[in-house]
Amino acid sequence: MDTLRMETGAAIDRAMGALVGGALGDALGMPTQLLSPARIGELYGPVEDFVAPAADHPVSKGLAAGTVTDDTEQALLLGRILVASGDGFDHTRWVKALLDWEREVKARGSYDLLGPSTKRAIDAINDGVPAEEAGRSGDTNGAAMRIAPVGIMMPLEPLDALVAKVAETCRATHNTSIAIAAAAAVAAAVSCGVAGGDWAAASDRAVVAARQGAERGHWTTGGDIAARIDWARGLVRGNAVTDGIRLIVDLVGTGVASQESVPAAFAVLEIAGGDPWRAAVISANLGGDTDTIGAIAAGMAGACAGFCRLPQEHVVRLKGLDMAQVRALAADLVAARMAKSSRSGKDAAA
């Protein structure tokens, strides 16, 4: 019993690391998203801490320094739906939650923070398109940015079960081969971290999961996610941070396309050596979709490092995040993971 309690406690710590690490990357990249590296330098200098966005920022103006955005909010929303759904996935509840969340975001005046695939799918659902069809053109990074709870809940093995759960959660908004492959890569990395793996092992498992994910959903054109993750990691390996950032910006790309931002996040993880805060800082200075790249990279790093190794002096300054709720969600997701692992073990023994 003591051993199980210790294993559960370690898993919850890593689950918290994934969720809060993602929030750190999201909040640090909030004021720099959509800006060029040159403009980031002009407005803020090198971003090494939370800063308030410029007064004329296209989407983040008015937010306080350290505020999380849609990346974190949608991840927590998905996590709650996963827990409530049990062994299945309640698509009706998920779509309703997204629609309710959309209305709340609009009320806050921040509708432009929605990603293009999610916005398009939600608009389609509002117009009466069935949820299972609404996501057939969603190929951007919205699924990957919020997928961490699936990685927390699903054991790494059997991998096809994890990838199937990823695909299931993608159906309403990102039901394409590229988006599912990207989300599967991130979920596998997080799952590996929660299981005790380090960041390098997590990246390796991500490539395998991406290959499986690419076989699901509606096929869409674009670079192969698994190949691009592997290439991006090798491209920056051994480079100094400044050189690594230049390679990511010039060659990998930092846009909302899954085949840019997700490989970019794995390249950031490589440069950062698995350090969550360093990953968040690097991401914030890339330009482009900085908050999402930061959320993904720092979330994966956080899953491997654990909450206890996150910089607590920065964690306490996050805004828009209820830590008690995050802790409860992490515990619920880990409990579901342990139950699945227990059943899988019994099945194997039988």
Rank of each mutant, 00 (worst) to 15 (best):
L43S: 01
L24Q: 04
R146L: 06
E73M: 02
M1N: 06
D100E: 14
L34H: 09
T72Y: 03
L35R: 06
G109W: 03
L114R: 13
V241D: 11
A339T: 12
E133T: 05
A284F: 03
L247T: 07
M338F: 03
Q33C: 05
Q33H: 05
W199C: 02
T176A: 13
K119V: 00
G287F: 07
A189T: 05
G255R: 12
T32R: 04
Q33E: 15
E102V: 04
S137Q: 14
D112N: 06
L43D: 01
V315S: 11
D123W: 00
R309V: 03
P46R: 15
G302F: 11
T242R: 13
A182D: 05
T67H: 11
P130V: 08
D224A: 15
T254A: 02
G17I: 04
D230I: 01
K61L: 05
A303C: 05
Q325K: 10
A38C: 02
E132A: 08
G86W: 07
A161F: 06
M300T: 04
R39Y: 03
R80F: 00
K61N: 09
G151W: 08
A188V: 10
S203V: 15
P155G: 04
I147E: 08
M1H: 10
C192E: 10
E270C: 09
R120S: 14
G255I: 04
A54Q: 01
R136D: 08
D291K: 04
S60T: 14
A295T: 09
N175Q: 08
A97T: 02
K346Y: 08
M30C: 15
A206W: 12
G197C: 10
S85P: 11
D2S: 13
L34V: 12
Y111C: 02
R120H: 08
L35M: 12
G66H: 10
A331L: 11
V249M: 04
A195S: 15
T72P: 05
H57C: 00
Q212D: 09
L156Y: 11
A227G: 14
D49F: 01
A65M: 06
